[in-house]
Design a protein around this nucleic acid. Sequence first.
RNA 1: GUGGUCGUAGCUCAGUUGGUUAGAGCGCCGGGUUGUGGUCCCGGAGGUCGGGGGUUCGAAUCCCCUCGGUCACCCCA
Length: 422
Amino acid sequence: MAGIDKLRAPKGTRDILAPDSARQRHLVDRFAAIVESAGYGQVISPMFEDVAVFSRVGESTDIVTKEMFAFTDRDDPPQHLALRPELTASIARAFVQHRPTAPWAVWYEGPQFRYERPQAGRYRQFMQVGVEVLGSADPLADVDTIVLAQEFFDDIGLTDTSLMVNSMGDEQCRPAYLDAVRGHFTEHAAALSEQSRETLAKNPLRVFDSKRPPDQPIIDTAPSLVDHLCADCLAHFDDVRSALDRLEVDYVLSPRLVRGLDYYRRTTFEFIAPGLDTAQNAIGGGGRYDGLVEQFGGPPTPGVGFALGVDRILLACDAADVFAAPDDSADVFIVDVVGGVEASVLSQQLRRAGLVVTRGFDQRSMKAQMKLADRSGARVAIIIGEQELSDGAVTVRHLRADSDQHAVPYPDIVSHLQELFR
RNA sequence: GUGGUCGUAGCUCAGUUGGUUAGAGCGCCGGGUUGUGGUCCCGGAGGUCGGGGGUUCGAAUCCCCUCGGUCACCCCA
Protein backbone atom coordinates (compact mmCIF):
# COMPACT_ATOMS: atom_id res chain seq x y z
CA MET A 1 0.00 0.00 0.00
CA ALA A 2 1.12 3.51 -0.72
CA GLY A 3 2.87 5.31 2.10
CA ILE A 4 2.23 8.78 3.40
CA ASP A 5 4.21 10.17 0.48
CA LYS A 6 1.46 8.94 -1.81
CA LEU A 7 -1.46 10.72 -0.21
CA ARG A 8 -4.21 11.55 -2.62
CA ALA A 9 -7.75 12.87 -2.56
CA PRO A 10 -10.10 10.36 -0.90
CA LYS A 11 -11.98 7.88 -3.06
CA GLY A 12 -14.73 9.53 -5.00
CA THR A 13 -13.40 13.05 -4.44
CA ARG A 14 -11.19 15.14 -6.64
CA ASP A 15 -9.38 18.41 -6.92
CA ILE A 16 -10.82 20.77 -9.46
CA LEU A 17 -8.03 22.98 -10.74
CA ALA A 18 -8.09 26.14 -12.80
CA PRO A 19 -9.55 26.79 -15.27
CA ASP A 20 -12.17 24.10 -14.53
CA SER A 21 -12.71 25.56 -11.07
CA ALA A 22 -13.61 28.91 -12.63
CA ARG A 23 -15.88 27.11 -15.04
CA GLN A 24 -17.78 25.50 -12.20
CA ARG A 25 -18.04 28.78 -10.34
CA HIS A 26 -19.30 30.46 -13.49
CA LEU A 27 -21.96 27.78 -13.87
CA VAL A 28 -23.19 28.37 -10.34
CA ASP A 29 -23.15 32.11 -10.98
CA ARG A 30 -25.39 31.66 -14.01
CA PHE A 31 -27.80 29.56 -12.00
CA ALA A 32 -27.86 32.13 -9.22
CA ALA A 33 -28.57 34.94 -11.65
CA ILE A 34 -31.52 33.09 -13.17
CA VAL A 35 -33.22 31.96 -9.98
CA GLU A 36 -32.63 35.27 -8.23
CA SER A 37 -34.28 36.98 -11.17
CA ALA A 38 -37.30 34.91 -10.17
CA GLY A 39 -37.15 36.05 -6.57
CA TYR A 40 -35.60 32.98 -5.03
CA GLY A 41 -33.31 33.73 -2.09
CA GLN A 42 -30.20 31.77 -1.28
CA VAL A 43 -29.99 29.54 1.76
CA ILE A 44 -26.58 28.52 3.02
CA SER A 45 -27.14 25.63 5.35
CA PRO A 46 -24.65 23.42 7.21
CA MET A 47 -22.66 20.77 5.39
CA PHE A 48 -23.61 18.37 8.18
CA GLU A 49 -26.78 17.91 10.16
CA ASP A 50 -28.23 15.69 12.82
CA VAL A 51 -28.74 12.31 11.16
CA ALA A 52 -32.42 12.53 12.07
CA VAL A 53 -32.80 15.31 9.50
CA PHE A 54 -31.91 12.92 6.72
CA SER A 55 -33.49 9.77 8.05
CA ARG A 56 -36.84 11.54 7.84
CA VAL A 57 -36.63 11.71 4.07
CA GLY A 58 -37.26 7.99 3.88
CA GLU A 59 -36.06 5.07 5.92
CA SER A 60 -36.11 2.71 2.98
CA THR A 61 -34.02 4.82 0.63
CA ASP A 62 -30.47 3.83 -0.15
CA ILE A 63 -29.34 7.36 0.53
CA VAL A 64 -30.33 6.96 4.14
CA THR A 65 -29.66 3.30 4.75
CA LYS A 66 -26.22 2.87 3.26
CA GLU A 67 -24.93 6.00 1.60
CA MET A 68 -24.51 8.42 4.49
CA PHE A 69 -21.22 9.62 5.86
CA ALA A 70 -22.38 9.46 9.47
CA PHE A 71 -20.31 10.08 12.56
CA THR A 72 -20.53 11.08 16.17
CA ASP A 73 -18.80 14.06 17.72
CA ARG A 74 -17.16 14.40 21.13
CA ASP A 75 -20.07 16.02 22.95
CA ASP A 76 -21.45 14.26 26.00
CA PRO A 77 -23.79 12.74 25.08
CA PRO A 78 -22.40 12.54 21.54
CA GLN A 79 -24.31 14.10 18.68
CA HIS A 80 -25.12 11.82 15.80
CA LEU A 81 -24.28 13.75 12.67
CA ALA A 82 -23.99 13.11 8.95
CA LEU A 83 -22.58 14.94 5.98
CA ARG A 84 -25.59 16.02 3.97
CA PRO A 85 -26.51 13.55 1.20
CA GLU A 86 -29.07 15.97 -0.23
CA LEU A 87 -30.42 19.40 0.57
CA THR A 88 -34.20 19.23 0.49
CA ALA A 89 -34.22 17.80 4.00
CA SER A 90 -32.01 20.62 5.28
CA ILE A 91 -34.30 23.19 3.68
CA ALA A 92 -37.35 21.59 5.27
CA ARG A 93 -35.58 21.61 8.63
CA ALA A 94 -34.63 25.26 8.17
CA PHE A 95 -38.23 26.10 7.28
CA VAL A 96 -39.49 24.58 10.50
CA GLN A 97 -36.71 26.21 12.52
CA HIS A 98 -37.18 29.76 11.18
CA ARG A 99 -40.83 29.74 10.10
CA PRO A 100 -40.47 32.17 7.21
CA THR A 101 -43.67 33.48 5.65
CA ALA A 102 -44.92 31.17 2.95
CA PRO A 103 -44.48 30.71 0.13
CA TRP A 104 -40.78 30.53 0.76
CA ALA A 105 -38.78 30.31 -2.47
CA VAL A 106 -35.14 29.47 -1.97
CA TRP A 107 -32.13 28.27 -3.88
CA TYR A 108 -28.89 26.63 -2.83
CA GLU A 109 -25.59 25.39 -4.13
CA GLY A 110 -22.85 23.31 -2.66
CA PRO A 111 -21.36 19.88 -2.20
CA GLN A 112 -23.31 16.82 -1.10
CA PHE A 113 -21.84 13.58 0.14
CA ARG A 114 -22.86 10.01 -0.47
CA TYR A 115 -20.89 6.93 0.40
CA GLU A 116 -21.09 5.11 -2.93
CA ARG A 117 -18.72 3.42 -5.29
CA PRO A 118 -17.60 6.11 -7.69
CA GLN A 119 -18.01 5.78 -11.45
CA ALA A 120 -18.48 8.03 -14.44
CA GLY A 121 -20.61 10.97 -13.35
CA ARG A 122 -20.84 9.79 -9.77
CA TYR A 123 -18.71 11.05 -6.93
CA ARG A 124 -18.75 10.77 -3.16
CA GLN A 125 -18.59 14.53 -3.00
CA PHE A 126 -20.61 16.12 -5.74
CA MET A 127 -21.95 19.58 -6.39
CA GLN A 128 -25.59 20.45 -6.73
CA VAL A 129 -27.61 23.56 -7.34
CA GLY A 130 -31.31 23.59 -6.65
CA VAL A 131 -34.46 25.41 -5.65
CA GLU A 132 -37.35 24.73 -3.29
CA VAL A 133 -40.71 26.43 -2.91
CA LEU A 134 -42.36 25.74 0.43
CA GLY A 135 -45.90 26.74 1.22
CA SER A 136 -47.63 26.58 -2.12
CA ALA A 137 -49.69 23.72 -3.52
CA ASP A 138 -50.22 25.55 -6.80
CA PRO A 139 -49.31 23.42 -9.82
CA LEU A 140 -47.89 26.62 -11.27
CA ALA A 141 -45.25 26.52 -8.54
CA ASP A 142 -44.17 23.16 -9.95
CA VAL A 143 -44.06 24.74 -13.38
CA ASP A 144 -42.15 27.75 -12.11
CA THR A 145 -39.30 25.56 -10.91
CA ILE A 146 -39.25 23.45 -14.05
CA VAL A 147 -39.12 26.50 -16.24
CA LEU A 148 -36.21 27.90 -14.26
CA ALA A 149 -34.22 24.74 -14.77
CA GLN A 150 -35.03 24.84 -18.45
CA GLU A 151 -34.00 28.48 -18.68
CA PHE A 152 -30.74 27.62 -16.97
CA PHE A 153 -29.91 24.85 -19.42
CA ASP A 154 -30.72 27.14 -22.30
CA ASP A 155 -28.61 29.90 -20.80
CA ILE A 156 -25.48 27.80 -20.60
CA GLY A 157 -26.05 26.43 -24.09
CA LEU A 158 -26.94 22.90 -23.07
CA THR A 159 -29.84 22.51 -25.46
CA ASP A 160 -29.66 18.75 -25.79
CA THR A 161 -31.68 17.84 -22.70
CA SER A 162 -34.90 15.93 -22.23
CA LEU A 163 -37.45 16.68 -19.58
CA MET A 164 -39.29 13.64 -18.23
CA VAL A 165 -42.47 14.27 -16.27
CA ASN A 166 -44.71 12.04 -14.20
CA SER A 167 -47.12 12.15 -11.29
CA MET A 168 -46.61 9.88 -8.31
CA GLY A 169 -50.10 10.42 -6.95
CA ASP A 170 -50.74 11.14 -3.29
CA GLU A 171 -51.88 9.34 -0.16
CA GLN A 172 -55.39 9.13 -1.64
CA CYS A 173 -54.54 7.24 -4.80
CA ARG A 174 -51.06 5.85 -4.37
CA PRO A 175 -51.91 2.89 -2.09
CA ALA A 176 -54.28 1.41 -4.66
CA TYR A 177 -51.73 1.94 -7.38
CA LEU A 178 -49.01 0.37 -5.27
CA ASP A 179 -51.21 -2.69 -4.85
CA ALA A 180 -51.73 -2.87 -8.58
CA VAL A 181 -48.02 -2.62 -9.28
CA ARG A 182 -47.13 -5.11 -6.61
CA GLY A 183 -49.72 -7.47 -8.03
CA HIS A 184 -48.39 -7.11 -11.53
CA PHE A 185 -44.76 -7.71 -10.59
CA THR A 186 -45.64 -10.53 -8.22
CA GLU A 187 -47.59 -12.21 -10.99
CA HIS A 188 -44.51 -12.09 -13.22
CA ALA A 189 -41.99 -12.57 -10.45
CA ALA A 190 -40.61 -15.72 -11.99
CA ALA A 191 -39.44 -13.80 -15.04
CA LEU A 192 -37.95 -10.92 -13.07
CA SER A 193 -34.27 -10.69 -12.28
CA GLU A 194 -33.28 -11.80 -8.84
CA GLN A 195 -32.36 -8.26 -7.85
CA SER A 196 -35.73 -6.96 -8.95
CA ARG A 197 -37.46 -9.60 -6.87
CA GLU A 198 -35.58 -8.27 -3.86
CA THR A 199 -36.51 -4.71 -4.79
CA LEU A 200 -40.13 -5.77 -5.16
CA ALA A 201 -40.25 -6.91 -1.56
CA LYS A 202 -38.92 -3.58 -0.28
CA ASN A 203 -40.38 -0.98 -2.64
CA PRO A 204 -42.31 -2.14 -5.72
CA LEU A 205 -42.05 1.22 -7.46
CA ARG A 206 -38.30 1.03 -7.49
CA VAL A 207 -38.45 -1.96 -9.82
CA PHE A 208 -39.12 0.59 -12.56
CA ASP A 209 -35.51 1.76 -12.18
CA SER A 210 -34.10 -1.59 -13.28
CA LYS A 211 -31.95 -1.59 -16.39
CA ARG A 212 -31.70 -5.36 -16.56
CA PRO A 213 -32.99 -6.68 -19.90
CA PRO A 214 -35.20 -9.50 -18.55
CA ASP A 215 -37.16 -6.96 -16.51
CA GLN A 216 -37.98 -4.65 -19.39
CA PRO A 217 -41.03 -6.42 -20.87
CA ILE A 218 -42.57 -6.76 -17.42
CA ILE A 219 -41.93 -3.10 -16.66
CA ASP A 220 -43.39 -2.11 -19.99
CA THR A 221 -46.66 -3.91 -19.32
CA ALA A 222 -47.01 -2.69 -15.74
CA PRO A 223 -49.98 -0.51 -14.84
CA SER A 224 -49.41 3.18 -15.35
CA LEU A 225 -49.43 5.73 -12.57
CA VAL A 226 -51.37 8.27 -14.56
CA ASP A 227 -54.24 5.83 -15.04
CA HIS A 228 -54.65 5.49 -11.28
CA LEU A 229 -54.54 9.11 -10.21
CA CYS A 230 -57.39 10.39 -8.08
CA ALA A 231 -59.37 13.36 -9.31
CA ASP A 232 -57.31 15.90 -7.34
CA CYS A 233 -53.99 14.52 -8.50
CA LEU A 234 -55.18 14.27 -12.07
CA ALA A 235 -56.35 17.89 -12.02
CA HIS A 236 -53.01 18.97 -10.58
CA PHE A 237 -51.12 17.03 -13.20
CA ASP A 238 -53.29 18.39 -16.01
CA ASP A 239 -52.61 21.93 -14.81
CA VAL A 240 -48.88 21.31 -14.79
CA ARG A 241 -48.94 19.86 -18.26
CA SER A 242 -51.11 22.49 -19.84
CA ALA A 243 -48.95 25.25 -18.33
CA LEU A 244 -45.83 23.58 -19.71
CA ASP A 245 -47.51 23.42 -23.10
CA ARG A 246 -48.49 27.08 -22.89
CA LEU A 247 -44.88 27.97 -22.01
CA GLU A 248 -43.63 25.82 -24.87
CA VAL A 249 -41.55 23.63 -22.62
CA ASP A 250 -41.08 20.26 -24.29
CA TYR A 251 -41.47 17.25 -22.06
CA VAL A 252 -41.95 13.53 -22.26
CA LEU A 253 -44.69 11.94 -20.23
CA SER A 254 -42.88 9.15 -18.38
CA PRO A 255 -45.22 6.91 -16.43
CA ARG A 256 -42.25 4.75 -15.40
CA LEU A 257 -40.38 7.63 -13.85
CA VAL A 258 -40.12 6.98 -10.13
CA ARG A 259 -37.65 8.87 -8.07
CA GLY A 260 -35.41 7.47 -5.42
CA LEU A 261 -36.63 9.49 -2.49
CA ASP A 262 -39.74 8.44 -0.64
CA TYR A 263 -41.07 11.91 0.01
CA TYR A 264 -42.32 12.70 -3.47
CA ARG A 265 -46.03 13.32 -4.07
CA ARG A 266 -47.72 14.17 -7.33
CA THR A 267 -45.37 15.87 -9.78
CA THR A 268 -41.97 14.35 -10.37
CA PHE A 269 -39.55 15.22 -13.13
CA GLU A 270 -36.08 14.51 -14.30
CA PHE A 271 -33.72 16.10 -16.77
CA ILE A 272 -31.73 13.73 -18.97
CA ALA A 273 -28.70 14.54 -21.08
CA PRO A 274 -28.94 12.08 -23.98
CA GLY A 275 -25.51 13.19 -25.16
CA LEU A 276 -23.92 11.62 -22.11
CA ASP A 277 -23.15 8.04 -23.00
CA THR A 278 -22.43 7.07 -19.43
CA ALA A 279 -24.78 5.11 -17.21
CA GLN A 280 -25.52 8.26 -15.24
CA ASN A 281 -27.20 10.63 -17.66
CA ALA A 282 -29.71 12.17 -15.28
CA ILE A 283 -28.48 15.71 -14.76
CA GLY A 284 -31.24 16.81 -12.46
CA GLY A 285 -34.48 15.83 -10.87
CA GLY A 286 -37.14 16.97 -8.52
CA GLY A 287 -40.77 17.04 -7.70
CA ARG A 288 -43.42 17.85 -5.18
CA TYR A 289 -43.14 16.72 -1.58
CA ASP A 290 -46.29 17.83 0.21
CA GLY A 291 -46.14 16.48 3.73
CA LEU A 292 -42.39 16.53 4.23
CA VAL A 293 -42.44 19.60 6.45
CA GLU A 294 -44.90 17.92 8.82
CA GLN A 295 -42.38 15.18 9.34
CA PHE A 296 -40.05 17.81 10.72
CA GLY A 297 -42.69 18.95 13.17
CA GLY A 298 -43.86 21.90 11.09
CA PRO A 299 -47.37 22.86 10.02
CA PRO A 300 -48.93 21.19 6.96
CA THR A 301 -46.88 22.73 4.18
CA PRO A 302 -46.74 21.72 0.56
CA GLY A 303 -43.43 21.93 -1.23
CA VAL A 304 -41.80 21.46 -4.60
CA GLY A 305 -38.25 21.74 -5.87
CA PHE A 306 -35.39 20.23 -7.77
CA ALA A 307 -31.67 19.61 -7.61
CA LEU A 308 -29.29 19.64 -10.54
CA GLY A 309 -25.96 17.84 -10.62
CA VAL A 310 -23.29 20.35 -11.46
CA ASP A 311 -20.62 17.74 -12.18
CA ARG A 312 -22.86 15.87 -14.60
CA ILE A 313 -24.03 19.04 -16.26
CA LEU A 314 -20.43 19.95 -16.95
CA LEU A 315 -19.81 16.47 -18.35
CA ALA A 316 -22.81 16.97 -20.61
CA CYS A 317 -21.44 20.36 -21.63
CA ASP A 318 -18.15 18.67 -22.52
CA ALA A 319 -19.98 16.14 -24.66
CA ALA A 320 -21.94 18.90 -26.38
CA ASP A 321 -18.87 21.10 -26.63
CA VAL A 322 -20.56 24.05 -24.96
CA PHE A 323 -19.85 26.22 -21.92
CA ALA A 324 -16.10 26.04 -22.26
CA ALA A 325 -13.82 26.90 -19.37
CA PRO A 326 -13.15 30.62 -19.27
CA ASP A 327 -9.90 31.98 -20.64
CA ASP A 328 -7.64 32.50 -17.66
CA SER A 329 -4.90 34.28 -19.54
CA ALA A 330 -3.23 37.22 -17.90
CA ASP A 331 -3.42 40.64 -19.53
CA VAL A 332 0.10 41.66 -18.66
CA PHE A 333 3.25 39.88 -17.58
CA ILE A 334 5.98 41.94 -15.99
CA VAL A 335 9.54 40.93 -16.73
CA ASP A 336 11.87 42.48 -14.17
CA VAL A 337 15.59 41.80 -14.40
CA VAL A 338 16.61 44.43 -11.85
CA GLY A 339 15.71 42.59 -8.68
CA GLY A 340 11.94 42.17 -8.86
CA VAL A 341 10.74 45.01 -6.64
CA GLU A 342 9.88 47.19 -9.62
CA ALA A 343 7.60 44.40 -10.84
CA SER A 344 5.91 44.36 -7.43
CA VAL A 345 5.30 48.11 -7.52
CA LEU A 346 4.04 48.16 -11.09
CA SER A 347 1.84 45.09 -10.73
CA GLN A 348 0.18 46.68 -7.71
CA GLN A 349 -0.64 49.77 -9.76
CA LEU A 350 -1.87 47.83 -12.76
CA ARG A 351 -3.99 45.44 -10.70
CA ARG A 352 -5.60 48.40 -8.98
CA ALA A 353 -6.38 49.69 -12.46
CA GLY A 354 -8.29 46.48 -13.14
CA LEU A 355 -5.80 44.51 -15.19
CA VAL A 356 -4.84 40.87 -14.71
CA VAL A 357 -1.13 41.05 -14.01
CA THR A 358 1.33 38.27 -13.34
CA ARG A 359 5.08 38.32 -12.99
CA GLY A 360 8.03 36.08 -12.33
CA PHE A 361 9.82 35.40 -9.09
CA ASP A 362 13.24 34.20 -8.08
CA GLN A 363 15.15 36.68 -10.25
CA ARG A 364 15.33 34.37 -13.21
CA SER A 365 16.97 35.27 -16.49
CA MET A 366 15.20 37.44 -18.98
CA LYS A 367 14.90 34.50 -21.33
CA ALA A 368 13.25 32.44 -18.60
CA GLN A 369 10.92 35.28 -17.67
CA MET A 370 9.95 35.80 -21.29
CA LYS A 371 9.05 32.12 -21.52
CA LEU A 372 6.82 32.55 -18.49
CA ALA A 373 5.29 35.62 -20.08
CA ASP A 374 4.46 33.64 -23.18
CA ARG A 375 2.97 30.80 -21.18
CA SER A 376 0.87 33.13 -19.07
CA GLY A 377 -1.15 33.98 -22.15
CA ALA A 378 -0.51 37.66 -21.55
CA ARG A 379 -1.04 39.94 -24.50
CA VAL A 380 1.86 42.15 -23.56
CA ALA A 381 5.04 41.82 -21.58
CA ILE A 382 6.42 44.79 -19.73
CA ILE A 383 10.17 44.68 -19.52
CA ILE A 384 12.06 46.49 -16.77
CA GLY A 385 15.86 46.41 -17.02
CA GLU A 386 18.80 48.66 -16.33
CA GLN A 387 18.16 50.60 -19.51
CA GLU A 388 14.52 51.25 -18.62
CA LEU A 389 15.45 52.29 -15.10
CA SER A 390 17.88 54.91 -16.30
CA ASP A 391 15.44 56.09 -18.99
CA GLY A 392 12.51 56.36 -16.60
CA ALA A 393 10.46 54.21 -18.96
CA VAL A 394 9.43 50.60 -19.45
CA THR A 395 9.44 48.51 -22.59
CA VAL A 396 6.03 47.23 -23.67
CA ARG A 397 6.36 44.21 -25.90
CA HIS A 398 3.37 42.68 -27.66
CA LEU A 399 3.34 38.90 -27.53
CA ARG A 400 0.41 37.83 -29.67
CA ALA A 401 -0.48 39.02 -33.15
CA ASP A 402 2.69 41.03 -33.61
CA SER A 403 5.83 41.42 -31.58
CA ASP A 404 6.20 45.19 -31.64
CA GLN A 405 7.86 46.73 -28.69
CA HIS A 406 8.25 50.31 -27.67
CA ALA A 407 9.23 52.43 -24.69
CA VAL A 408 6.51 53.98 -22.54
CA PRO A 409 7.44 56.65 -19.99
CA TYR A 410 6.87 55.36 -16.50
CA PRO A 411 4.19 57.93 -15.56
CA ASP A 412 2.15 56.96 -18.63
CA ILE A 413 2.22 53.21 -18.21
CA VAL A 414 -1.09 52.74 -16.39
CA SER A 415 -3.12 54.88 -18.76
CA HIS A 416 -1.31 53.38 -21.73
CA LEU A 417 -2.30 49.84 -20.75
CA GLN A 418 -5.80 50.80 -19.74
CA GLU A 419 -6.21 52.21 -23.21
CA LEU A 420 -4.79 49.07 -24.74
CA PHE A 421 -7.13 46.75 -22.83
CA ARG A 422 -10.25 48.84 -22.92
C1' G B 1 -21.84 -4.45 -1.29
C1' U B 2 -20.89 -7.30 -6.42
C1' G B 3 -18.36 -7.77 -11.18
C1' G B 4 -15.08 -6.32 -15.50
C1' U B 5 -10.62 -3.73 -16.63
C1' C B 6 -6.09 -1.16 -15.80
C1' G B 7 -1.68 0.34 -12.62
C1' U B 8 6.17 1.83 -16.07
C1' A B 9 9.09 9.46 -15.26
C1' G B 10 4.67 15.56 -13.92
C1' C B 11 1.33 13.81 -18.50
C1' U B 12 0.38 10.11 -22.71
C1' C B 13 2.56 5.63 -23.50
C1' A B 14 6.53 1.76 -25.55
C1' G B 15 9.15 -2.19 -23.29
C1' U B 16 9.89 -8.14 -28.31
C1' U B 17 9.55 -15.78 -26.17
C1' G B 18 11.55 -13.28 -18.24
C1' G B 19 18.24 -11.65 -19.71
C1' U B 20 23.16 -6.58 -18.49
C1' U B 21 23.18 0.69 -16.03
C1' A B 22 14.19 0.73 -17.84
C1' G B 23 12.99 4.06 -22.97
C1' A B 24 10.18 7.74 -26.25
C1' G B 25 7.10 12.03 -27.05
C1' C B 26 5.18 16.13 -24.48
C1' G B 27 6.15 19.04 -20.16
C1' C B 28 10.01 21.04 -16.86
C1' C B 29 15.19 23.26 -16.06
C1' G B 30 19.68 25.19 -18.47
C1' G B 31 22.39 26.64 -22.88
C1' G B 32 22.77 28.27 -28.31
C1' U B 33 28.62 34.43 -26.66
C1' U B 34 27.18 38.71 -22.59
C1' G B 35 18.71 42.36 -22.24
C1' U B 36 13.59 39.20 -25.40
C1' G B 37 9.09 34.54 -25.58
C1' G B 38 6.42 31.66 -29.31
C1' U B 39 9.85 27.82 -34.26
C1' C B 40 14.60 25.17 -34.32
C1' C B 41 19.22 22.85 -32.20
C1' C B 42 22.12 20.96 -27.86
C1' G B 43 22.33 19.39 -22.85
C1' G B 44 20.14 18.14 -18.01
C1' A B 45 17.00 16.76 -13.99
C1' G B 46 13.17 13.32 -12.97
C1' G B 47 11.15 6.41 -12.11
C1' U B 48 11.98 1.68 -5.08
C1' C B 49 8.19 -0.29 -13.13
C1' G B 50 1.40 0.90 -7.18
C1' G B 51 2.89 -2.21 -2.61
C1' G B 52 4.12 -7.11 -0.39
C1' G B 53 5.30 -12.17 -0.98
C1' G B 54 6.62 -16.27 -4.25
C1' U B 55 8.90 -18.99 -8.70
C1' U B 56 13.85 -18.37 -11.11
C1' C B 57 20.86 -18.02 -11.86
C1' G B 58 17.98 -13.63 -13.28
C1' A B 59 11.18 -10.57 -12.89
C1' A B 60 8.49 -4.25 -15.32
C1' U B 61 7.62 -9.12 -17.76
C1' C B 62 5.18 -15.48 -14.65
C1' C B 63 2.02 -16.83 -9.89
C1' C B 64 -0.57 -15.28 -5.24
C1' C B 65 -2.20 -11.45 -2.01
C1' U B 66 -3.11 -6.39 -1.31
C1' C B 67 -3.91 -1.10 -2.39
C1' G B 68 -5.45 2.38 -5.95
C1' G B 69 -7.64 4.26 -10.62
C1' U B 70 -11.52 3.34 -14.02
C1' C B 71 -16.13 1.32 -15.94
C1' A B 72 -20.64 -1.30 -14.93
C1' C B 73 -24.50 -3.39 -11.50
C1' C B 74 -27.24 -1.48 -7.20
C1' C B 75 -28.87 3.47 -6.64
C1' C B 76 -28.76 8.32 -7.77
C1' A B 77 -27.13 14.40 -9.23
